[in-house]
């Protein structure tokens, strides 16, 4: 008994054949562009990155130098369009150079948090059993400690420079990523393609790095943008509390310095505050957009 196989038969039945990689990439790209919140987030973020990269060209000189009479209001002297603070420092220059501290701390803290969180989450989710129990306890231990307090303690122990601050924020924020990655690994390790990889004799590390990790990444990428935003906020909070490198201008520090003139010169706190809000907003918009774009259920 044999059924005649018509090689042509399968073509009309198949629904998604013929969609080659190239048009698919274009569709991806279009999905990016069509998502207005994502585009807005990317544009604002790109603006801040531009400021950070070209700060020395845009506003030459040390932003901490006293260059003008104190407390010039915005527009009062066109040489200092956003005015000066109580020590006669240029606010515009401070904002432009301050984007560096915020972005550097935000991105490096998120990178540290991602690295630790992904490692812990992957090990816990993949191996399960006792390793999982032990690592989950560790995650819970960190999660029950308020993030900001933990960061303050770590920075208070070390030097208040950018490296310590980034490290502290990273150390305090990894549990979220770890939980996320753990959940992904737990479900993916039971999937058929991982079973197939095991039956082909792949080593554990190959399965973790090559089979599971690439499929676990989308929600992690989304989390990364939100983590960066949170790190920027925490850095601003620390600077406000004067736990900062006194030789580097930062937005949080500018708010802290302007606090005393809140009733007479509110712009000294409002402007850096707006910068922080915009940067955090842009990262959250990017996160939301990525969530929609990378979500397999809304696959273009």
């Amino acid at each position: 008994m044999s059924v005649q196989v018509d090689p042509e038969l399968e073509v009309p039945v198949s629904v998604d054949t013929g969609s080659r990689a190239a048009p698919r990439k274009h569709r991806r790209l279009r999905a990016f562009v069509r998502n207005p919140t994502f585009v807005a987030g990317v544009m604002i973020l790109a603006f801040f990155v531009f400021l950070a990269v070209f700060a020395d060209l845009l506003c030459p000189g040390d932003p901490l130098d006293m260059v003008a009479p104190p407390v010039l209001w915005p527009g009062q002297d066109m040489a200092f369009p956003l005015g000066t603070d109580s020590l006669g420092r240029d606010v515009l220059s401070g904002l432009v150079h301050g984007s560096r501290a915020s972005l550097v701390v935000g991105i490096s803290a998120a990178a540290i948090g991602l690295a630790i969180g992904m490692l812990v989450g992957a090990l816990a989710g993949f191996f399960g059993g006792r390793i999982d129990t032990a690592l989950t306890r560790l995650i819970e231990l960190f999660q029950t400690t308020p993030t900001f307090i933990l960061v303050i303690v770590i920075v208070a122990i070390g030097e208040p420079n950018l490296e310590t601050i980034a490290m502290a924020i990273g150390l305090a924020s990894w549990p979220t990523v770890a939980r996320l990655v753990r959940a992904q690994f737990r479900s993916l390790r039971e999937s058929d393609f991982v079973m197939a990889a095991r039956s082909l004799g792949y080593s554990r590390w190959r399965i973790i790095l090559q089979e599971i990790l690439p499929n676990a990444l989308p929600p992690v990428i989304v989390a990364a943008s939100v983590m960066t935003a949170n790190a920027i906020l925490i850095e601003a909070g620390l600077s406000f509390l004067n736990m900062r490198d006194p030789n580097i201008v930062s937005w949080g520090g500018m708010i802290g310095d302007g606090r005393d003139q809140l009733r007479t010169a509110w712009f000294l706190t409002a402007l850096p505050g707006a910068a922080i809000a915009l940067a955090v907003l842009s990262l959250n918009l990017v996160g939301d957009g990525l969530n929609e774009i990378l979500n397999p259920r809304t696959e273009p």
Partner: peptide, 11 residues
């Protein structure tokens, strides 16, 4: 050089 999503169930 194609990805799984470019194929039908039977393929």
């Amino acid at each position: 050089d194609r990805y799984p999503h470019e194929f039908s169930g039977g393929q």
